[in-house]
Structure formats: C-alpha cells, structure tokens
Simulated assay, not measured.
Amino acid sequence: MMEAEDAKTPRERYRAQVRAEVKEHAWEQIATAGASGLSLNAIAKKMGMSGPALYRYFAGRDELITELIRDAYRSAADAMSASAQRSGGPDVSALAHALRAWALADPHRYFLVYGTPVPGYHAPDDVTGIASEIMATLLDACAALPRSSAPGTPFDEHLASHRDWADGHPAPPAALHRALAFWTRLHGLLSLELAGHFTGMGFDPALLFEAELDDLLSR
C-alpha cells in the first residue's frame, strides 16, 4: 500500500487528500441532516473552496454518494470476510456478531446502505457487486449448516425458481431461505436498536440479538 502511495505524483496525492476531506465533511452532514441533506456547495464553503472548484474533485452529488456507499459496503464486506477468516470459514454466528459490531461502530454508515434508499439514486454495478459479496459470504455459511429433515416450505419451493438475488450461488433453496431469514431478522433488530427504539424499554439489546440469533440457529 505504501509503495502505491509513493508511486503517486504530488498532484495525485493532493487530489486524494481533498477527496478524503470532502467525504469526511459529507459524513458529518449525513450525521446531522441525512443523505437527502447532502450539499457539495455547503462542503465547499466549509473547506474554503468555491463550488466550481470542488466539482473538480466530485462531478456531482450522486458521485459523492456513490463513493460513500461504496466505502460503506466495502467496509462491511471486509468485516464479514475477516470474520470468516478468523473462524476458519463462514460461520453464521460469527458473521452475525461481525455485522452488529460493524453497525454499532458507525450507525450513520449503516443507515446509508441499509436504511431508507436515497431518493432518485441508483447504485452502479460495482457497488451492487460488493453488496453481493456480503450476501455470498452469508449464503456460504448457511449452506454449511446441517440440513433439516423437515419437508421444504412453500417459500423454499418459491426460491427454487426465484433466486436471481443470490447471484448464481449454488446453495439449495432451504439455505437461501435461511440466509434471508438471518438477513431480515438481524437487520430488523439492528435498525430498531440503532434508531433508538429500544431506549427506555428496560432490556439489553445485545441479549435480544443473542436470543434471536440462537432461535434462528435452532431452526
């Protein structure tokens, strides 16, 4: 990594520094006003630059949002991958804890990618590709779980022919169903926790997360 940095020209290094600073200010804006309140002109003013000058580093608001979403998904994918490596392979429990730790570390980053979609924004293919990496890691873990002897559900049968979202993963329908169950229930818990909906209810959200995870694994 250091060699790659050294290979850059001073102009390239300066450009990278400015883009990084712009993204830092963008995250600050998102923390206070949400992604819909993101303004390049406001960032330029805070950095002592003119709007046109800043547009030399980001062509527009959509490019900046894409960079932030790409960084967020990449961070989540790396956290899940690191968890799988530490566990000697994809492990559902380890992945769930890695996801929660990642979400708690930066709730605004979490909500940018797993909260309400940014109006009018469409992620480019490389960004959706990173999101697919995350799901593929979870599918690997669910496919490795012991298979149930219970008969398949109607939703299992539905998934046998509605699996485009799995991006070609060979997991059987029951594993696809398990992955979706983990994904939806754990994200539901995290979204409620991070939005503060458990505040004042008198229980430990971490223990609720563990209980839900145990219930999912027991199935």
Rank of each mutant, 00 (worst) to 15 (best):
H97F: 05
A211H: 11
R61A: 05
A98D: 01
R13I: 07
P151N: 01
A171K: 04
P151L: 08
A131D: 10
A42P: 05
I134E: 05
A144C: 00
D204V: 04
A42L: 14
R56A: 14
H177L: 10
R178Y: 08
Q29K: 03
R13W: 07
L180R: 10
W102V: 02
S36N: 10
A4H: 10
E3V: 15
A101R: 12
A76I: 12
G89R: 01
G60M: 01
R109C: 09
H177E: 11
T116G: 09
A35P: 05
D62H: 08
L139H: 01
G196A: 00
E12L: 12
S132L: 11
A195Y: 01
A31F: 05
A144N: 04
T9I: 01
M1A: 15
H197P: 05
T199A: 14
A143Q: 08
Y114P: 05
M80E: 10
D214L: 09
L208N: 06
L104V: 15
G196S: 03
S81P: 05
Q17T: 15
A174C: 12
T9Y: 01
D215A: 15
I30Y: 00
G115N: 05
A105E: 11
F198R: 00
K23D: 09
K46G: 10
S93V: 08
A175C: 00
A105I: 10
I69Q: 12
P173D: 03
P154M: 06
A166P: 06
